[in-house]
Simulated assay, not measured.
Amino acid sequence: MSAVLDDMDSRPGSTTSLLRTVIGLYLRDAGGWIAGRDMVSLMEALGTSATVTRTALGRLRKKDVVRQENRDGVAGFTLTAGAAAMLARGDRRIFTPRSMSDSDPWCLVSFSIPETEREKRHQLRRRLHWIGCGTVAAGLWICPDTLRGEVEEILVDLDLRDMATVFVTRTPMVGGSLRDAAAKWWDLDVVAGLHRDFIDFIHGQGAAVPLPDDGVEASASSFATYVQCIDRWRVIPYLDPGLPGSFLPDDWPGAEGTALFSRIVDAYAGPSAEYVRSTLGVAVP
């Protein structure tokens, strides 16, 4: 079983969560290695002390996200192989939010796992939930067909592939409305709340999201704004399956949240990378 999971248990805004976000955004583009002192400098721009940062780095080492590696006598950190794959999946989710149309296919996952494997059954349900699957019944889960590859990876990783059957289907036929069914299969109130919290957080930053032609300078401030916004956003595209409008309530905030996120990336990704480049002394795209 893989030792590295997509860790969504860290509270957004916490030191561990912010550090994971910084690592996900910049460690790979910095050549796969960052000196510990430079990581401390980046986290100081986020208001985190060196002592707290080193403690968080220790936690991520225990989670098998990073490993310590010295280069030319300088202590630093690099990604583990499992973490690199995890972050690649995260990139696809975070920067390409899902959005289904009514004609897109669905994936159904049916499984029957004996009580002797109850821990694997628990892990399967947990991981299906964290990639945005909905629960039709205890042993029957549903998700957009675009997630089928990740479902297969989870089943193989947990050594449960021979205990599950995966179906590809058209729009499910339900006894009531599709909106009522979706509200039972997914906790849409939680997902909507995440979108609204993100929107409120961004608006609470005042003028932190400029118009595209305003321009943002590379600085510790622009770096901090970008990292904090990504950190607040990154859990949403995991839990939000991107359902068609026919499955969602009329006041669904997903479109507004996604548009706001895209605006932040357009305005801040470049200046933030420039700040990291100046801090590390390496080329960061």
Rank of each mutant, 00 (worst) to 15 (best):
D7A: 10
R20G: 11
I23R: 01
G24I: 01
G24L: 02
G24F: 06
R28N: 09
D29Y: 10
A30D: 02
G32Y: 09
W33F: 08
I34P: 02
G36C: 03
D38T: 04
D38V: 01
G47A: 08
S49Y: 05
V52Q: 15
T53K: 03
T55R: 14
T55C: 02
L57G: 05
G58V: 06
G58K: 09
L60F: 06
R61Y: 03
R61Q: 15
D64F: 11
E69W: 07
G73K: 05
F77C: 00
T78L: 04
T78M: 11
T80M: 07
A85W: 05
R89L: 13
G90D: 14
G90K: 08
G90V: 01
G90Y: 01
T96A: 14
D104L: 04
W106N: 06
F111E: 05
P114L: 06
T116W: 08
E117L: 15
E119V: 14
R121C: 11
R121T: 03
H122K: 14
H122M: 10
R126T: 13
L128N: 07
I131R: 05
I131Q: 04
G132I: 06
G132F: 05
G134H: 07
T135K: 14
V136F: 11
A138T: 12
G139A: 09
L140V: 15
L140W: 05
I142S: 01
P144E: 04
D145Q: 14
R148S: 10
V151L: 06
E153T: 13
I154N: 05
I154K: 01
L155E: 07
L158C: 09
L158P: 08
D159M: 10
L160I: 07
L160Q: 07
L160K: 07
M163W: 09
M163H: 14
M163R: 15
A164T: 06
T165L: 11
T165A: 12
V166C: 10
V166N: 03
T171Q: 15
V174N: 05
D180C: 02
L188G: 11
H195P: 00
H195K: 01
D197H: 13
I199R: 02
Q205N: 03
Q205M: 14
Q205W: 10
G215K: 10
E217P: 00
E217L: 13
A220P: 03
A220Y: 02
A224Y: 05
A224R: 11
Q228W: 00
I230G: 01
R232L: 01
R232P: 00
W233N: 03
W233L: 06
R234H: 13
R234K: 14
V235H: 15
P237F: 06
D240T: 04
D240Q: 08
G245D: 15
F247K: 00
P249A: 12
D251A: 14
W252E: 08
W252K: 08
P253E: 04
G254Y: 00
A255M: 09
T258I: 13
T258Q: 12
F261Q: 09
F261W: 12
S262F: 10
S262L: 11
S262A: 15
V265K: 02
A269K: 14
S272W: 02
A273P: 00
A273I: 01
E274V: 02
V276H: 01
V276D: 01
T279Y: 00
L280I: 10
